[in-house]
Structure formats: structure tokens, C-alpha cells
Design a protein around this nucleic acid. Structure first.
Length: 301
DNA sequence: CGGGGCTCCTGTGCGC
DNA sequence: TGCGCACAGGAGCCCC
């Protein structure tokens, strides 16, 4: 439960982290009714426009189901509604009861709650068991959307997402089929319209596992090399979920203001460290504006 | 159609 | 010791 209990946070949620959060949410919020909503950064709520419309539509609804698609957390609410939350870079869903008393704006009737609070919380759902579900988001990139379920399932947004790499239907044949004619492999792995759920961290991990250089062009791979990439996708993501995402982006206690950014950066600071396979020094380059770490010796192909 | 660049944000870390 | 600026980054969007 640590992944969503109030005082814990994780960095850069990708498929394994979101999957872990969704599994934990399923243990605590199913059947809970949303009694109240509060938000102090209304830009996060992309849909519908207008916070009062959003809050009126959400309040009184029961959480019937929680699932994941790509890096999105999907809450199915009573009345055929879908509440979608994408945590983007620094968003964390928190579950618990904690004090917001340092925030002067917090209505008194909502308290009293327990410490610790988190000054990056910008959205709170009060549940009918006295707990809160909150979205903490330092960089304010996270997005929240409310849909009618039917509309959501037939939307271009929903249909644009690439296949789920851990589903059984994601076979090697399917992988080969969805690959574009050209492009750098790192950017392809990170493109949510091609494959769902892989971000910067796991793209680097997968390519290291596959011993593939991130700048390789997709049309230059042999079948054997493609197979290695495919198997590495399954292996790395499966292992990460098994470890609750902790193997790469680890849990860290969130104690007030310090530590959050350091935690975020830690996963991206593998350069200058030794490669676990060949002891060479890990190199860092930029691909498509994204920091990329790889071993220049054993990731050759 | 594809690829590159911009945008949103703010804590951090550097240069001077 | 302090000030200011560049930087990171998911994914949608725009433009050529």
C-alpha cells in the first residue's frame, strides 16, 4: 500500500509504476463514494472546461473500477463516467488522511486531518471512508479528464494509444508489425502511439538489456536483434512490476520540501557509473531532447 | 506523412 | 555568500 499512502512518493511514473498504483488503488478505493473535490490548480483539469462542472459531475459518484491504459489511471465511476488521471512527470497519487493546516485556504470543515501534508498537492477527492485521494504534482504537468465512458472508448485519444506491451496479444509478430519504417529505436520505444507505457527510464533499461545502441535506426535491425529488443521489453517491464517499480525508480519518503527533486533526478544520473555488464563507463547523450544513458561498449548494434 | 521544435512548470545547480 | 539563468522532461501541438 506504500505506493499510494500519503507520505510516500515515487518518481517518473511509467507503465510498471502506474500498474503498481492501480493495483494498490484497487485494494482501497473500490466502492468508495467521492463526497467532495478540491483543486487549486484548475489547469490540470483539461476536461470538462470549468471546475464547477467537473466537481458537480464527480461528487456523489462511486468508484466502481480502476484500471490502467498506457500511463493513464482510469477510474470508472457510477453513472457511466470515466475519470482519467495522467501523472506525467512529477504527479503522484496519494491515499490517506493528512493535515493541510499550513494551507490557509483549506476549509475548516474538511479537517482535522493527520500530518504530514505535501505542499505540491493540487487536487483532493474526499471519500466516504474519511480518507482522501490526492494528486501531488510539483511541475503541474499532470492531467485530469472526465469523460462519458462511451465517448471515451470511441475517442481518438483512446484509439491513438499503441498496444500494451505486456498483454499476451503483444506477440513478436505484432511488435514487428507496429514498428514504423524508420526512426531511432529509442524514440520509437518512447512513442506512446506506437507502444504504450514506456518512458525515458525503461526505454534506456530495455535497450541496455537488449545490448542495443539507442541511436540505432529501426530499419537496420536483423530479425535476431528485433527479437532481443522485443524480449527485453517484456523482461524489463515484468521485472519492474514484480518489484513494484522499485528496481529503477525507487520509493522515497517525502519529507516536506527537500528530496523530491533529488529523487526524481537520481534515476537519470547513471552516467559516469560503471556498466553492470562490462564495467565500462556509462555515457549520456541527448536524443530528441531527452537525456539518454547507455553503455558505449556493450550496446553496439 | 514525418521529423523537429515549442509548450507547460518549478526546484536545482551552475557561473560569475 | 548571492543572484540570475539554463535546464529537465511526457506528450500534445504546430509548422515546414
Amino acid at each position: 500500500m506504500a505506493s499510494i499512502s500519503g507520505i510516500y512518493s515515487r518518481c517518473m511514473p511509467e507503465l510498471p509504476e502506474v500498474e503498481t498504483i492501480v493495483r494498490d488503488l484497487n485494494k482501497v478505493v473500490l466502492g468508495r463514494k467521492i463526497e467532495d473535490v478540491w483543486c487549486d490548480w484548475r489547469k490540470s483539469i483539461k476536461r470538462p472546461s470549468g471546475f464547477s462542472v467537473f466537481s458537480r459531475a464527480v461528487e456523489g459518484k462511486q468508484i466502481e473500477r480502476v484500471w490502467r491504459r498506457a500511463k493513464n489511471i482510469i477510474f470508472e465511476l457510477s453513472g457511466g463516467k470515466i475519470l482519467l488521471i495522467h501523472q506525467k512527470m512529477t504527479g503522484h497519487l496519494l491515499y490517506g488522511a493528512w493535515s493541510m493546516k499550513h494551507k490557509a485556504w483549506m476549509p475548516k470543515e474538511k479537517g482535522p486531518l493527520e500530518e504530514p501534508a505535501n505542499r505540491f498537492i493540487h487536487l483532493i477527492f474526499w471519500l466516504d471512508n474519511g480518507k482522501q485521494l490526492a494528486l501531488s504534482d510539483l511541475r503541474k504537468f499532470a492531467k485530469v479528464e472526465l469523460w462519458d465512458k462511451k465517448e471515451f472508448l470511441s475517442s481518438t485519444e483512446f484509439k491513438s494509444w499503441g498496444p500494451e506491451p505486456l498483454e499476451k496479444s503483444f506477440t513478436f509478430e505484432k511488435f514487428k508489425k507496429i514498428l514504423p519504417a524508420r526512426g531511432k529505436i529509442k524514440q520509437i520505444l518512447m512513442n506512446p502511439q506506437i507502444i504504450a507505457g514506456i518512458g525515458n527510464i525503461y526505454a534506456d533499461e530495455i535497450l541496455w538489456e537488449a545490448k542495443v545502441h539507442p541511436l540505432c535506426l529501426v530499419n537496420q535491425f536483423s530479425g535476431y536483434q528485433l527479437k532481443r529488443i522485443y524480449l527485453s521489453i517484456k523482461k524489463v517491464l515484468t521485472k519492474a512490476i514484480k518489484l513494484g517499480g522499485t528496481s529503477i525508480s525507487d520509493f522515497r519518503k517525502l519529507s516536506g520540501e527537500k528530496g523530491l527533486f533529488g529523487e526524481t533526478r537520481k534515476a537519470y544520473r547513471r552516467e559516469k557509473e560503471k556498466c553492470h555488464r562490462c564495467k565500462s563507463v556509462i555515457k549520456r547523450i541527448k536524443i530528441g531532447g531527452r537525456g539518454t544513458c547507455f553503455c558505449p561498449v556493450c550496446q553496439r548494434i
